[in-house]
Design a protein around this nucleic acid. Structure first.
Lengths: 250, 250
DNA sequence: TATTTAATGTCGGAC
DNA sequence: GTCCGACGTTAAATA
């Protein structure tokens, strides 16, 4: 059976369904009144309340409250889960080895216990990333300025990795840092680090922040540091089909 | 009824339960074979497969595959969801206003439709954050060095916000940047930005990166820039109970 | 609202 | 395994 669900399960039901869900590599989903304890990189406690608990076959463990996109507590993939009875309490326990982290959920009341043997062979196809901005500029250098010549992408230098390294028409080294969204102070500091590193070896080094826009603070710092800005939006078109003609839908 | 769940629901069941779940501020959870389309800051497509879909009463919308901690697609809190029939297809649609983003889930096959009127008045109590490191040092300045005098926390300066500003025993300005985990190149660049900004106004300015450890690259850059490192772990003790005496369990 | 930064960030890629 | 940086980052605090 691909899916099983039990409303107001008994303790035996829970133990049985948990075991079945785990052994069949299913996604286990529980609606429960529970308490949560976490200790690891940080430490937390969450008092009694109703939450949705999800345990994935890869060890991912999520506890969701009724608000926010983020789980209130979690364990990443690779963690090991078990269901124990302690002092007459039902406890879900997930352990991560490195770093050592423990998540414990005391199941006070379980309203629904379900599992889902999900079959999924699809991966997300996404366009509009920063890497695609760099690709776009590598193929169309004139988007930056006339005479710009790209040299290398993802170039590792002493203190970091430069998105795109090139030369301008006067032979100066040009460092490009791409941001797919509005660039902030952090982005300027990053670019500045690359520029300063390259200036140790080259005479004239320019730094250009390539992004759809700048925050006010970023603009000020960029100017003060003598760095430049080039407006560019991340591309969201389909990738070209290896030379095939574009269709009406492209 | 706090929880309702229907296995292999009919189209009418789905429409009915969706409406009931939405109107009662419940968390709606769906096990389904589906396709997903997203367009907004980026653009993505996900072919047919089995996923767990969660819709929260605050508008958060999560689509989980059977692996990873992160949802494969989502919509953040504040989004508006609807269930439409289009060309005989059942489509869950979530719209975010700003930035404009649209998420569409084509429900090809629904295995389980459930909702949960979760009651939850608890907030997470977490210790071990970066802010607590700063608090700790503010109260125990000798943890940094003999003679250190904290002046202000979260001090806004021209290009950013300094975690902790103080003076050393010689009267020099000291800027502390805290990291709750191993500090990297970014952390050094951040500290450097603050130090350089303060040096425009003050004669002698020291910068100290306070963290449990440093990456190798961070150590090199820190040294080259004449900045300092002070090892400190984020505190994970209970917060003091408003001056009450500590108990045996503290 | 825009800005800035933390996060138990997570994730992937390069070395 | 460590290091480095992106992310449709999300979320909180602040101006």
């Amino acid at each position: 059976m691909k899916v099983e669900a039990k409303l107001n399960p008994s303790r035996d039901d829970i133990v049985d369904l948990f075991s079945k869900g785990l052994s069949t590599e299913a996604i286990v989903t529980i609606f429960a009144h529970c308490r949560v304890f976490y200790d690891g990189r940080a430490k937390s406690e969450l008092g009694p309340g109703d939450r949705v608990i999800i345990i994935k076959p890869d060890g991912s463990f999520l506890i969701h409250q009724k608000e926010k996109r983020e789980p209130v507590n979690w364990q990443p993939p690779g963690s090991s889960v078990s269901l124990d009875v302690r002092e007459d309490k039902l406890i879900l326990r997930s352990v991560r080895r490195k770093p050592k982290e423990i998540l414990e959920v005391e199941l006070i009341d379980v309203y629904l216990f379900s599992y889902f043997q999900a079959e999924d062979y699809e991966a997300l196809a996404l366009v509009g990333s920063e890497a695609e901005m760099a690709d776009l500029v590598f193929k169309n250098p004139e988007l930056i300025e006339e005479g710009f010549k790209p040299i290398s992408k993802e170039k590792s230098i002493r203190h970091g990795i430069v998105d795109l390294l090139g030369k301008d028409k006067d032979g100066n080294i040009v460092i490009l840092e791409f941001k797919r969204r509005r660039a902030d102070l952090h982005a300027v500091s990053q670019l500045k680090r690359y520029v300063e590193t390259m200036r140790e070896e080259y005479e004239k080094v320019r730094g250009i922040l390539v992004a759809p826009s700048l925050t006010s603070g970023a603009r000020k710092l960029l100017k003060k540091e003598g760095l430049e800005f080039k407006k560019l939006n991340p591309p969201k078109q389909e990738k070209s089909r290896k030379g095939r003609q574009k269709t009406l839908f492209d």
